[in-house]
Design a protein around this nucleic acid. Structure first.
Length: 820
RNA sequence: GCGGACGUGGCGGAAUUGGCAGACGCACCAGACUUAGGAUCUGGCGAGUGAUCGUGAGGGUUCAAGUCCCUCCGUCCGCACCA
């Protein structure tokens, strides 16, 4: 056996071996239970970063462990390869997006392979290739046929720098999620998916996901933003309807004004031809300009103006002035809000600023009805100044009663509102899947027939973003034939949001090369749902919500049998250096390539799993990496020395049994840490302890090591470590005389009986303070333990001059003597 | 403002069900081997001379609290005029 650990040789040898023997290939033909472990596929930027290394190391431990535990494991990898960076690179370097992307994939695949990950590469998917996006387009058409894809003219989020529109989810604090540029509003005809149809199910089914982090579920919950309320029908003096949405209909008798969003269609109608027309139009324009900069971020000073019209309150017939303000949004509720300064903080501030009246309609008790308000009263109370509802508790009684009352008169209705908006999927950029629609003057919009898919991306295009789709610069792309009448038609020029491609890739892995359908349902029925999904928390809303929506829509069409795609979700923390995220601009990037080159993939994997539990952020530490490298070297030397020593078997001594106990205790801990809670860091530290114990046993004075015990320990160590550091383990396994690879070994079971200790050290406490540690035979009951403690020579000393009144015994752990 | 997570040695972290706080590793210190060591091995390593004190601060429950309850402070993340 080789004396030294030569990771370079070992790692390339085994990577080659695994690839040539197709070790990680899987199929549905298996008697074993299935297990689908998936890591979020990368965007092929060209180089792996430490976040990838962390993500894929975690997934690989799970995949290898589950396989060894007897599961038929699907563990695939692919490329989320449409998107802006390729296009930007094309513009900058004059290369073609496809070439740039494919060469990046090539490079990253090499890097991934150098990590020794157990992927079935035969199932690789690449979203930018026609064999994949053909089905992305096909799925678009299915959604269209179901009425879940529609085109509308709407004010949309526009990033001037990326020269394309963005989904609401891609706007962060008023800025483009990608480039940070202030997002503007632009009115365009765009394609949307009706994700709002699924708002309630997306919300309800979060409860069916106990294996998801609370944090992610809370974020989705808030993003969906369900709120129950009442739509109350206010009317203008002329009788035009002006419904308002409110969750506080109990305050309706306190309305002293009404507010419309500046964009509200009634604003123009109500002011036309009046003295207010000009100033109102100016105000609206000002707010709209402002909205580009501030309206969605920061603390905007509330401003507004009276528009010269009045509304009638349906509850009491009061005539209240109609205002417009910068704090009412057109795209939530009805774009109209009732102003109740007495019981809403924003309305209170606004009323103060513009001297609007304040009428109290809720008080702590009826006799406090006339107490002046210095701030909005938002607590629970009873109704006052509210006609026949006076004296009623506001929540929930008055809300229900007033709703009923309005409904009876046809003046209101119960309504549920969601903050979630439909998903805007049109993009005015080149490097995406073309939206497979054609427009015919006679027949209107028509989906491209299946047999004409895919609609290929043209190559004769100008990439420079100019605010419209680059596909328009192609000489031939626009021309199409109407599938309906056969007449001339024009193609849709926009491409799809790349989040569409990643909303179904986990399905394609089940049947990656099917050219007749996106997948065979028998195959997805077998593999789905993903048992364990692993990725960054930054996808908590976008990707994870869209994928859930997709799965539900596909379920409703009968294309899949699952309503939720991912049973368990692990969100890994970031990899930090010097306390901040690694980034090129800060110059604190540690390259995985360099680390693998210097210490090997096994060390890199081991460190990244050892340094912190997976959900938490991880601080990169060069010398701790060396520590892991030393650990692998110690193991190598340990196994080498055992192998060379030629130990003999014999009857078990106490020391032999103790080592055997450590081995089985470690096995138990490692198994539970991987399977139960993904605490790889403590699994590794347990193996380090075991290695320390093996060295101490080997070097102990007296009898030489027992071959049975130490060789069994070595074998189990190699098996246990193999999901973490697979190359070194296969090499050690082979060099110690085994034929097959460790991956094909069953995960060993620990033997309960071997975990028993003959003696245990217990703590002796007096009133909870530690006084001594005592070695006693294990398994003593309460009385036996108490007797052993009381028989101890120092017993009287522990008590001092006090009397023992009670003794608490935790068997094999501690004794606490309560004294007075 | 609302929601979530967290706070333990010089550092990363462990303590899974309320039961010996600081496992394991890093850094550091000492020793061995050595011409030499940034290699390897061995030992030490929360504070305090000590009794003791110690898990962000203060209080509480308990025989026993890092863990449970209350109040407060701090850090990070998400959402943010959603009527």
């Amino acid at each position: 056996m080789d004396k030294h650990y030569n990771f370079r040789e070992i790692e390339s040898k085994w990577q080659k071996n695994w690839a040539e023997s197709r070790l990680y290939k899987v199929s549905e033909q298996s008697d074993k239970p299935k297990y689908y472990v998936l890591e979020m596929f990368p965007y092929p930027s060209g180089n792996l970063h430490m976040g990838h290394v962390r993500n894929y190391s975690i997934g690989d431990v799970v995949a290898r462990f589950k396989h060894m535990q007897g599961y038929n494991v699907l563990h695939p990898m692919g490329w989320d390869s449409f998107g802006l960076p390729a296009e930007n690179a094309a513009i900058k370097h004059g290369v073609f997006p496809r070439d740039w992307t494919l060469s990046n994939i090539d490079n990253m695949k090499k890097q991934l392979k150098s990590m020794g990950l157990s992927y079935d590469w035969d199932r690789e998917v690449t979203t930018c290739l026609p064999e994949y996006y053909k089905w992305t387009q096909w799925l678009f058409i299915q959604l269209y046929k179901k009425g879940l894809a529609y085109k509308k003219h709407a004010a949309v989020n526009w990033c001037p720098s990326c020269a394309t529109v963005l989904a609401n989810e891609q706007v962060v604090e008023g800025c483009c999620e990608r480039c940070g540029t202030q997002v503007e509003k632009k009115a365009l005809d765009q394609w949307f998916f009706k994700i709002t149809d699924y708002a309630q199910r997306l919300l309800d089914d979060l409860e069916k996901l106990p294996g998801w982090p609370e944090k992610v579920k809370t974020m989705q919950h808030n993003w969906i933003g369900r709120s129950e309320g009442c739509e109350a029908m206010f009317k203008t003096e002329a009788g035009d309807e002006l419904p308002v949405f409110t969750t506080r209909v109990d305050t309706i008798f306190g309305v002293t004004y009404m507010v419309l969003a500046p964009e509200h269609p009634m604003v123009e109608k109500l002011t036309k031809g009046t003295e207010y027309e000009q100033p109102v139009a100016e105000f609206v324009k000002k707010v709209q300009q402002l909205s580009n900069i501030d309206r969605t971020s920061g603390n905007l000073e509330k401003e507004g103006m009276f528009i010269g019209a009045y509304a009638i309150n349906p509850a009491n017939g009061d005539k209240v002035p109609i205002w417009i303000t910068n704090y009412v949004l057109m795209d939530y509720g009805t774009g109209a809000v009732m102003g109740v300064p007495s019981h809403d903080e924003r309305d209170f501030d606004f009323a103060h600023k513009y001297d609007l009246p304040i009428i109290r309609v809720i008080a702590e008790s009826a006799d406090k009805a006339d107490e002046p308000l210095t701030e909005a009263y938002t607590d629970i109370g009873v109704l006052v100044n509210s006609g026949k509802f006076n004296g009623m508790t506001n929540k929930p009684d008055a809300i229900g009663a007033i709703c009923d009352w309005l409904e009876e008169q046809g003046l209101g209705k119960r309504v549920i509102n969601y903050r979630l908006r439909d998903w805007l999927i049109s993009r005015q950029r080149y490097w995406g899947a073309p939206i497979p629609m054609v427009y015919c003057e006679k027949c209107g919009p028509q989906p491209v027939p299946d047999e004409e898919l895919p609609v290929l991306l043209p190559t004769d295009v100008e990439f420079l973003p100019f605010g419209e789709s680059p596909l328009k610069t192609s000489a031939s792309f626009a021309e199409a034939k109407c599938p309906c009448c056969g007449g001339p038609a024009t193609r849709e020029m926009d491409t799809m949001d790349t989040f569409m491609c990643s909303s179904w890739y986990y399905l394609r892995y089940c049947d990656a090369h099917n050219d007749q359908a996106p997948w065979n349902k028998e195959k997805t029925d077998y593999w789905l749902a993903v048992d364990q999904y692993i990725g960054g928390v930054e996808h908590a809303i976008l990707h994870l919500m869209y994928s859930r929506f997709f799965t539900k829509a596909l379920y409703d069409m009968g294309l899949v049998s699952q309503e939720e795609p991912f049973t368990n979700l692990l969100t890994q923390g970031m990899v930090l250096k010097d306390g901040t995220k690694m980034s090129k601009s800060l110059g604190n990037v540690v390259s995985p390539e360099e680390i693998i080159d210097k210490y090997g993939a096994d060390t890199a994997r081991l460190f990244i799993l050892f340094a912190a539990p997976p959900e938490r952020d991880l601080e990169w530490n060069d010398s701790a990496v060396e520590g892991c490298y030393r650990f692998l070297n110690r193991i190598w030397k340990l196994i080498y020395s055992i192998h060379e020593a030629g130990y003999q078997p014999r009857e078990l001594t106490a020391a032999d049994k103790e080592l055997r106990r450590v081995v089985h205790a470690t096995l138990k801990k490692v198994t539970e840490d991987i399977a139960g809670r993904f605490n790889f860091n403590t699994a590794i530290s347990a193996m380090m302890e075991m290695v320390n114990a093996m060295s101490a046993y080997r070097d102990a004075e007296g009898e030489a090591a027992n071959a049975d015990v130490i060789c069994d320990a070595a074998e189990k160590l190699i098996i246990m470590l193999s999901p973490f550091a697979p190359h070194i383990c296969d090499e050690l396994w082979q060099q110690t005389g085994h034929a097959d690879v460790v991956y094909n070994q069953p995960w060993p079971a620990y033997v309960e009986e071997y975990l028993q200790k003959a003696e245990v050290e217990i703590a002796v406490q007096v009133n909870g303070k530690l006084k001594a540690r005592l070695v006693i035979p294990s398994g003593l009951d309460q009385a036996g333990t108490t007797a052993a403690v009381e028989a101890h020579a120092d017993y009287a000393k522990w008590l001092g001059d006090k009397q023992a009144v009670k003794t608490i015994v935790v068997p094999d752990k501690l004794v606490n003597i309560v004294v007075k």
